[in-house]
Computed example of a mutant assay.
Amino acid sequence: MSEETRHEALSSFLRKKRAVISPQSAGFPIGVRRRTPGLRREEIAQLAGVSTTWYTWLEQGRDIKVSSAVLDSIASALRLTEDERTYVYNLALDVNAKLVQKKTVLTEISPSVKTILKALNYCPAVVTDRYCQIVGWNRAAAYVFLDFKEIPMEQRNLIRLLFTRKELKSLAVNWEHFVRGFLAIFRVYYGRYVEDEWYKRFIDNMSMLHPEFQSLWMQSEVNTAPDVLIEFRHSKAGKMEFNLTSLEVQGDADLRLSVYTPVPGTTTEGKLREFMH
């Protein structure tokens, strides 16, 4: 990601977060001259204890000096979560610039991860890398989602498949809620690997081809492990309910294990046992 792109990403994110804070909740009067939602730049600057000019330059994406202490104040003023703070630090300080070279992108998962996938008999599970490329899955995932083996390796990008495969678009009852969780994880990687040009190319391409992607991406959610309850309408099994748990796999490569556990008290696990035999 170029310096210009990194600054643009930071600028867009700060504006989005500023716009969702109500003046009343921050102790400011609503006033009659507010033309846009949320707080004004000068109000964020006041809360953070910085000059309005400096904050304006930061939000405009100018190339200015930024310290961790000042970013802490900005993050507090904007009420950022820990994941959102990390995202802002990565973009503003370029703290992970060398990670692109150090981290490995794998196309094959380890035997131990394969064993875990196999052991999760009736819990659909998918392993993805930092680009959201699918590098591993179990039999339950192939049944509930797609048989990823039939998709060429270079096309197994989870984000792209969510927008291009009609089976996945019709599967989730609340498709947008389903997708937002993965986009929130994807944005974590986007901020972490600020030097990797792949992300800009991918996002530009998806935005051009899929207006829905652009709309959801612009919501700027950031979450390393979103808590998602998902209801599926499976073509064979009918209604199925899962809790999604997303875990980072330890190791040199950025791998993530997403496990869909059947909601207790529902018929989901029983249906999986019946239809997978």
Rank of each mutant, 00 (worst) to 15 (best):
D72L: 02
V70Q: 09
V66H: 07
D63M: 05
V50R: 04
P23H: 09
P23S: 09
T107P: 00
S76N: 15
F28H: 10
R41F: 08
R33P: 12
V88F: 04
R35K: 15
R34L: 14
L58T: 05
L78K: 02
W54S: 02
K65R: 14
R62Y: 13
S67L: 12
L120N: 10
S67W: 13
Y122D: 09
L117I: 01
V32I: 11
L78N: 03
I64L: 12
P124W: 05
G49E: 12
V113R: 00
R18E: 14
T115W: 06
D63R: 13
W57K: 07
A26W: 09
Y55N: 12
V105F: 06
L39M: 13
T52S: 14
E84I: 05
A69Q: 15
S112Y: 10
Y55S: 11
A92V: 03
V113P: 02
S51R: 09
L91P: 03
I109S: 01
R79F: 07
K102N: 10
T53F: 01
D72M: 01
S51G: 15
Y89E: 08
P111W: 07
V66T: 14
A19F: 03
Y89V: 07
I64P: 08
I30H: 12
T52K: 07
Y89C: 06
G61Y: 03
I109F: 02
E84G: 02
K118T: 15
L99W: 04
P23M: 10
T36N: 11
A97D: 04
Q24C: 02
P37K: 02
Q46S: 13
I74G: 03
R18C: 12
Y55G: 10
L93R: 05
A119W: 01
A92Q: 07
R41H: 14
T107N: 05
R35G: 11
L106E: 13
A77K: 03
R85W: 04
W57I: 14
A19P: 04
A92R: 02
G27R: 07
R41Q: 15
S110C: 01
S110Q: 10
T115Y: 06
P37I: 05
T115M: 13
D94K: 11
A97M: 00
E43A: 08
P111H: 06
A97I: 10
Q46W: 08
S68W: 08
G31F: 13
V70K: 03
E82Y: 00
D72E: 15
C123D: 05
N90W: 05
I74D: 02
R18P: 09
L39W: 06
G31N: 12
A75P: 07
L78Q: 05
L106F: 02
K98E: 12
S112C: 00
W57C: 10
S51N: 09
A19H: 04
I74Q: 06
E82A: 12
A45K: 01
G61M: 08
W54D: 05
Y89P: 04
F28Y: 15
V113C: 00
K98W: 00
G49R: 02
T56V: 13
Q46Y: 11
S73F: 03
E59T: 04
E108T: 13
V50C: 14
D94W: 08
A75F: 05
I74H: 03
L106P: 00
D83C: 08
T104P: 00
I116Q: 01
T36A: 14
A69H: 13
T53E: 15
N90R: 06
V66G: 05
R35I: 10
P23D: 11
K103V: 14
G61H: 04
A119C: 02
E82M: 06
